[in-house]
Design a protein around this nucleic acid. Structure first.
Length: 274
DNA sequence: ACTATGTCCTGCGAGC
DNA sequence: TGCTCGCAGGACATAG
């Protein structure tokens, strides 16, 4: 389940390994779901471009691409990738077996391949020619306490649902929403607009803290998440509430409760979170 | 303008 | 053992 820390880890790994390489050709599978831009558009845009940089924006991985024109000019474009629930972008050698659910392969000048594999097909690939893809919302790692508080002003929706709303903050998913609410001592069902400024400040701090710690540990491997090198993360060992239903709270030993909020499993400590 | 709900998709585990 | 069934979840469309 790639959220901000997992996507950051993958983007860093990809940048380290394939930055500067050139996309020679692209193969796209027959399923249509993985392609937000038309397959024709993607296949026309990518070949012949050099990968200038790979970075994370929200839960998106952005490949900044450059193509040299005949008159010594440069054309910039972007290859934008969302991993959905089960998406992986792997750097492989062409000899490696192609796994089931491989939807796209980019062959690189170095002889390697970039492979997009996604069993559940919630992931999306797209290309953009306009500059500066910035995602739908605000970056949680750089937002100020003031801006953070303003995002939730007068909102009637539960704070957990607001944290997951990518138009407000982008990059926060189910794991880090639950973990940051626990650290801030706030119940997931509380109305976002009714939180005090002190509570919002605690949540702002807790969210940044939990995201930074998770990035340090290479993200959380819960279902089948692995980074660009195929390695698992270790932050799942630090989870205090997520998927710990019935287990004792690490702060007060009260059993962790689970409820469904906005269709998502939600975990919290009834004593520590008010 | 917000908010809530249904939909997409496969793999996995529970239950018989 | 082997089958069916229900469920998980991010983003988006649609309805209220």
């Amino acid at each position: 389940m790639p959220e901000l820390p997992e996507v950051e880890t993958i983007a860093r790994g990809l940048d380290k390994r394939v930055r500067g390489d050139v996309i020679d050709s692209v193969w796209l599978g027959k399923h249509r779901e993985p392609f937000k831009s038309s397959p024709r558009e993607i296949a026309a845009a990518l070949p012949g471009t050099r990968i200038a940089e790979i970075r994370r924006v929200g839960k998106h991985i952005v490949f900044d691409l450059v193509r040299k024109t005949s008159r010594n000019g440069k054309v910039s474009m972007q290859w934008i990738l969302h991993l959905g629930m089960t998406g992986r972008m792997l750097v492989c050698s062409p000899e490696e077996e192609i796994p089931k659910h491989t939807h796209a392969i980019a062959t690189l000048s170095s002889g390697r391949e970039l492979r997009f594999v996604d069993p559940r097909r919630f992931g999306r690939l797209s290309v953009a020619t306009e500059q500066g893809f910035s995602g739908p919302g605000t970056e949680p790692l750089t937002v100020t306490a003031e801006e953070f508080a303003k995002l939730f002003h007068r909102r009637k929706t539960p704070i957990k649902a607001a944290l997951l709303n990518q138009k407000l903050l982008h990059g926060v998913g189910n794991i880090y929403a639950d973990e940051s609410l626990f650290r801030a001592g706030i119940r997931p069902r509380r109305q976002a607009g009714r939180l005090t400024r002190a509570e919002l400040d605690r949540l702002h701090g807790a969210l940044k803290e939990v995201l930074r710690e998770a990035i340090k540990l290479g993200g959380s491997s819960v279902s089948d998440y692995v980074d660009a090198e195929g390695r698992e993360g270790f932050f799942q060992l630090q989870h205090r509430v997520y998927l710990r239903t019935g287990k004792p709270c690490l702060a007060c030993k009260t059993p962790i409760k689970r409820l469904v909020l906005g269709g998502r499993g939600t975990h919290y400590c009834p004593k520590c979170q008010r």
